[in-house]
């Protein structure tokens, strides 16, 4: 059973992007492999959603920083 993520406070999320991405990929693999109890599937799905949000968060932040650094060209 994966540990459900702690509440992601506004502060920097604990996991780095790569860690979140790695775990998300693993979650998807296990869901697709099947053979899970109903409860496990649900918990895993929730974990997957949380991780996807986290990755999105990182990518949005990166996009903002890139835009911020854009010179006035």
């Amino acid at each position: 059973m994966t540990d459900t993520p702690g509440p992601e406070t506004a502060a920097e999320p604990a996991q780095t992007y790569e860690q979140a991405r790695e775990e998300l990929a693993d979650v998807v693999r296990r869901l697709e492999a099947g053979g899970l109890t109903l409860e496990e599937s649900l918990t895993l799905w929730e974990r997957g959603e949380a991780l996807a949000e986290l990755c999105q968060h990182w990518l949005d932040r990166a996009r903002e920083r890139l835009a911020a650094a854009r010179p006035t060209d």
Partner: peptide, 20 residues
């Protein structure tokens, strides 16, 4: 960045996530 965004997009549209 784009490459990672595409990856995330592809993962999120996987049936196991998109249509629980």
């Amino acid at each position: 960045l784009e490459q990672q965004e595409r990856w995330l997009e592809s993962v999120r549209t996987r049936p196991v996530l998109a249509e629980p």
